[in-house]
Design a protein around this nucleic acid. Structure first.
Length: 592
RNA sequence: GCCAGCGUAGCUCAGUGGUAGAGCAGCGGUUUCGUAAACCGUCGGUCAAGAGUUCGACUCUCUUCGCUGGCUCCA
């Protein structure tokens, strides 16, 4: 407990120092650009940023100059002084600072606090250090454009991102850690391990999965389909192209227009590439009258979806323009919702565990609520919203799930539970999602005949078990830094014959492992064993079987793990049994 | 899409107004090897594309395309 309090005090001190560093950066900017207009300069994880409106664009070459100026200011050791002024006075002080004025007018009360150091004055809640010399170790990292107040319709300011720490050692450690993080980037590993590529002729945001990448993808897809069928889903195929009226009926069209590809006119029809699967699945449900006995009606599909993403939003496999969602829609009675939600979360947790994700550590739940006041964005039906939000929350609470709530993150048709995962650079993204929907059944007039013979309206749960395959692969690559669990490894075993005389025995091993569906290769190139081992290591192949005279004579294998560890020589039959079991059990360790 | 930066061989990178370089990979040999790089030879680039400035452009300017970091958006 005490430890925690101390920690949070230390964190607060660090936060104050970072915020003061932001002011010093602003002062440096002011000295270089006397007519600079200042936006906001908050602290963020590891540091801070500040937004400026300047007479010319900043270039990365400016950063060292600004940094030097900042160091001068720190050395000058001027005091941070706090004054409370009336808004009337503040309007005079910030007469040339339109952004500050805009912010001030929105603050409650008649007074604002103003901090000054040197000849720089800023409107700021504080707190700040006493003197600039309290600033220890910082580094300006990058410049970026950022819309004022996050709105595309407002001017774009120039933002400088910076990090700051208590001492140089911590800063160095941070920078080193950043280097390590870059090495895990799925785009780099995707290239190194030859998992996916892009072609300018095909188009941006449209990846090609190489043979190796396709092995991973196929393995994931089979895993999902098999597991879902086992859990009572009907796995189906629906068209990736549909009449525009389908999305007008669903109500998606007005919300999704901007992310849908343009209409294709074919004869008298207007067709669209689908941006989502739900309406397709509803058409299957609606193909004939349904009984309450058929509910919950669980429809699943590995569904390709097409969404126009702005070019600047595309990132490797993380964000693409065509993705394959492990999608499903559960049509059920309202009273069945809690039970179904629990099964869905069971499935999701099962899948996540198989991929090596631990709840709380690698992912957390976000209960995403709607903003009832925003009637343009969310369907109006307070009773249904209340019911749905309560069911979702109750399920999470009862499961003792690690979750937090977020407002204004729901779908237009209902609240949802998002499974939030951090990518390698700490950016959190929605990996999977579970949505409660009380709108679509009305739109599509979905019904079932209840016990009493009357038609009733079901609700729908939209859910994804492992999300979009592309994004999930991106997360997986970064999670394992390319050293995938055996069951996912594109090549599971490489046989390394010591010399040409062992090629025959190597081929025999290959044939036997292949016969039991193990992904195996013999490295029969004219290279030295060391070279072959090195390359297998770099390719992160889990098992290397080194075979020479001894092994051939005993029908044995010397097993080297990609960790570098060497297992005692074992009979080939033993290795076969072991690896088969490792794959079947989807074990995340290599050592049997 | 917006702001800034980057784009040299399959990969990693050097070169900065005077007709393009290295290592690895590839290919051809030699070598037959006990746990992370054998040796020799050789192929490979209209320096992202197009236009302009210049006696001359990979190098300077503009446009387009792609990528990166952000913003906006998102599975």
């Amino acid at each position: 407990m005490d430890n925690n309090v101390e920690k949070s005090e230390a964190a607060e001190k660090l936060d104050t120092m970072r915020h003061s560093t932001a002011h010093v950066m602003a002062e440096a900017i002011q000295s270089m650009f006397p007519d600079a207009k200042f936006g906001i300069g908050p602290t963020i994880e590891d540091g801070f940023y500040y937004d400026f409106d300047l007479s010319r664009p900043l270039s990365p070459d400016d950063l060292p100059v600004i940094e030097a100026k900042m160091k001068e200011i720190v050395k000058g050791n001027s005091a941070f002084t706090k004054t409370i002024v009336t808004k009337e006075e503040a309007r005079k002080i910030f007469a040339n600072q339109p952004y500050k004025l805009e912010l001030m007018e929105e603050l409650p009360g008649d007074e604002v606090t103003v901090y000054r150091q040197g000849n720089f004055t800023d409107m700021c809640r504080g707190p700040h250090l006493k003197y600039t010399a309290g600033i220890k170790a910082f580094k300006l990292m990058s410049i970026a454009g950022a819309y004022w107040r996050g709105s595309e319709k407002r001017p774009m300011l120039q933002r400088i991102y910076a990090v700051a720490f208590n001492n140089q050692k911590e800063l160095d450690a941070y920078l080193l850690a950043q280097e390590e993080i870059k090495k895990r980037d799925h785009r780099k590993i995707g290239k190194d391990l030859d998992l996916f590529v892009f072609s300018d002729l095909i188009g941006k945001g449209l990846p090609i999965f190489t043979e190796k990448g396709s092995v991973i993808r196929r393995t994931l897809e089979r895993f999902v389909v098999d597991e879902e069928i086992r859990r009572g889903y009907k796995h189906i195929y629906t068209p990736e192209l549909a009449n525009i009226d389908l999305y007008k009926t669903s109500g998606h069209y007005p919300y999704y227009k901007d992310t849908m590809y343009p209409v294709m006119k074919v004869d008298e029809e207007e067709l669209m590439l689908r941006p989502m699967t739900c309406p397709h699945h509803f058409q299957y449900y609606a193909s004939k009258p349904r009984s309450y006995r058929e509910l919950p009606f669980r429809i699943a599909e590995l569904a390709k979806q097409f969404r126009y993403e702005k070019s600047g939003e595309l990132t490797g496999l993380m964000r693409v323009r065509l993705f394959c969602l492990a999608d499903a829609h559960i049509i059920c009675q309202r009273e069945q919702a809690a039970g179904e939600l629990n099964s869905v979360l069971d499935l999701i947790e099962f899948m996540a565990a198989a991929l090596g994700y631990k709840p709380g550590e690698n992912y957390r739940y976000r209960l995403s609520m709607g903003d009832r006041k925003d009637e343009k964005k969310y369907y109006k039906d307070d009773e249904s919203w209340d019911y749905a939000e309560n069911v979702l929350r109750q399920v999470l609470v009862q499961r003792k799930a690690n979750f937090f709530e977020a407002s204004n993150e729901a779908a237009f048709y209902g609240p949802k539970i998002d499974i939030q995962m951090k990518n390698v650079s700490g950016k959190e993204d929605t990996a999977f999602t579970v949505q409660y929907d009380f709108v679509m059944p009305k739109r599509f007039k979905l019904t079932y005949i209840d016990k009493d013979g009357k038609e009733k309206e079901p609700i729908v749960i939209h859910r994804s078990s492992i999300g979009a395959i592309e994004r999930t692969m991106a997360f997986l690559i970064e999670r394992w830094a390319g050293a995938f669990p055996v069951w996912l490894s594109p090549v599971q075993v490489v046989v390394v014959p010591i010399s040409d005389t062992h090629l025959e025995y190597a081929a025999k091993i290959e044939a036997e492992l292949k016969a039991m569906d193990v992904r195996v290769q013999v490295d029969n190139r004219n290279e030295r064993m060391n070279q072959k081992i090195r390359e297998a290591q770099l390719q992160k192949i889990p098992y290397m079987l080194v075979v020479g005279d001894k092994e051939a004579a005993d029908n044995a294998v010397a097993v080297r793990l990609r960790s570098g560890e060497q297992l005692p020589v074992m009979p080939l039959e033993d290795f076969k049994k072991k690896i088969r079991q490792m794959i079947d059990d989807r074990v995340n360790e290599l050592k049997p």
